[in-house]
Design a protein around this nucleic acid. Structure first.
Lengths: 342, 342
DNA sequence: TTGAAAGCGCTAACAA
DNA sequence: TTGTTAGCGCTTTCAA
């Protein structure tokens, strides 16, 4: 009488392969794992038995035996702006695409988790215990990132959070300087900015970058907050224009907000880029869907996510680890003055 | 001497809990699973032992013992248009958001997989063997969907593929009729259409819907293909306008293409909606980022994905199962004639 | 180079 | 109601 349900009814197990090949389970294990210690002849026999039976090792059993799940966790919070992380902000799609591109063809799985607003601490603890190869952090607060990092060292964040938590990053300050300089080179001297939420480290760096750049040019600072949402960007742009009708350019801290800003600018009767030039940030799908299309600072998000995934596989990441990626200026119609239609 | 690595070093196991509570493993198992057959007093003792030790059951061990992994698989192909599924098309973000919203707070994981172009069949077979609770199909070809369904019945597609494969769906024909009727009610009589790829079942249904609706109004058919990408939508719109300058409205089979179409229309010197009204499809982020914002047919994608997930949990889905969802007309500026700026 | 055997942490059938 | 025990499918140590 069998006391436990067969894991996959009808599926051949390592035992079946061993029997078919006339060797022990251990030998089969050596062969399928490419470990040393199996004669060429046995290797051949095992391989043909595997092929014949259509055997595929059970990831579950393997995980139990080795103590390591072949999975990468992607963790995001559902309760930070922009509300409803996946779906709302195009950034996450790129993260996913990057991680998947690296995992494609491997036996490693990608598991998605969201932290619930009301019990994020518990969720973090649970994920820390259950984590496989490692954890990719998307938009987690610094406090939660640290909590997770202390419980499970195999963590890397896709944006800098707390100092200790390993992260991939970009030089936001320099990127914003490039963006503002681009607007300045267009001859614009009334360059406003729309920023992200103040509890977001990236948003704060970009805000800082704008201040420094503007100061460097000796221009007046004109800032508003847009909360990293399209609506926020739209409203912020409208108010900026009402208060400062002379604005002739805008730096917007993400493309989603910038798309909203462009809408508000044209709705006010102004033209982009003729009256107001706009530059976004990220190079998300929002940048190419805006009308006119947005010039933007392109973050290599896919590349960063893929590299972060690769690092997790590599094992130990030092506390405070950082890897910096270049940001590229993409010029599209929202700052292009040539060839405009009459 | 231990022959196998401890799964999670230092983590309490069910044995530790049993010892601490002074009961057997079986009793602990009964309590943590809420199964009948444990006295109230033991339940209490076990629960406090669990709390004290911070015990969390191992999903891996559980999966091995029960033969069922508590995971839902989301499978997409990487090789169909629009290229690079995640990241490129905003639709998938909504799928993910919907599935996650249902899974949030459960112990069920969501695992993402992509089928590789060069060995999709093998990948399908592997996923079929390894599938946990069930499989959610995103943009898989009918052939692959059938292949998977034959090997693993616990499958549901987020769009209709082959007849046998269970799916959630919308009435594309009726939805397009609503969209075209909306344009017609605006007084437009030269209503063109931009369609998706001909190997996509949804795209074909929408194409069919357009033909029927246009025929119903006794208007001429004016179709072009946009491949479900922004660029494709842009180019298709430009060519349509060149060939048929009298076009005064466009039905576009997805918002991403529609955003491109709007760009092409304004670039030609026409105004939206004044000269050409545009209606999209999906209600993705592209619809709200376009300028002007797009009227569109809103698909309840999140709801559909959540419901599909719920059904997988419910177990057996009959062959040919279908559940139909309503599509809603969302009117935004791209078809709004009131209050336009001078 | 090989195989026997002891687990990994849990569930579930059975006997008490 | 409870505990004993035999697995789930695999890896890995050890002895041969």
């Amino acid at each position: 009488m069998s006391r436990a349900a067969p894991a996959r009814p009808g599926k051949p197990t390592i035992n079946d392969v061993a029997r078919a090949a006339g060797v022990s389970r251990a030998t089969v294990s050596r062969v399928i794992n490419g470990t040393a210690g199996a004669s060429p002849s046995n290797r051949t026999r095992v391989r043909s038995a595997v092929a014949e039976l259509g055997y595929q090792p059970s990831a579950t059993a393997r995980a139990l035996a080795t103590g390591r799940t072949r999975a990468i966790e992607l963790i995001a919070t559902s309760f930070r702006p922009p509300t409803g992380w996946l779906g709302a902000h195009p950034y996450y799609s790129r993260v996913l695409a990057g991680a998947m591109s690296f995992l494609e063809g491997t036996d490693i799985q990608l598991r998605i988790h969201v932290l619930r607003a009301d019990c994020a601490d518990q969720d973090v603890d649970a994920f820390a215990e259950d984590a496989g190869i490692g954890v990719l952090l998307a938009n987690v607060t610094p406090e939660l990132a640290v909590r997770l990092y202390l419980r499970c060292r195999r963590v890397i964040s896709l944006v800098p959070t707390a100092a200790a938590v390993p992260a991939v990053e970009v030089d936001n300050i320099a990127a914003v300087r490039t963006a503002v300089t681009h607007l300045h080179q267009l001859g614009r001297r009334h360059i406003a900015a729309i920023h992200g939420p103040s509890d977001n480290t990236c948003a704060e760096e970009r805000r800082d970058g704008y201040r420094r750049a503007i100061e460097g040019f000796g221009l007046p600072e004109l800032s508003a907050d847009g909360g990293f949402t399209r609506e926020g960007g739209h409203d912020a742009a409208r108010e900026l224009l009402e208060r400062h009708p002379g604005i002739d350019a805008m730096f917007v801290a993400c493309d989603l907000m910038a798309a909203g800003a462009v809408q508000a600018i044209t709705a006010s009767g102004r033209r982009v880029p003729g009256d107001v030039a706009v530059i976004g940030f990220d190079d998300s799908v929002a940048a190419s869907c805006a009308n006119p299309r947005l010039s933007t600072m392109r973050l290599p998000v896919e590349e960063m996510a893929a590299e972060a995934t690769r690092m997790l596989l590599g094992g130990a990441l030092d506390s405070g680890y950082r890897k910096r990626y270049p940001v590229q200026l993409i010029v599209r119609e929202s700052t292009l003055l040539t060839g405009t239609v009459a």
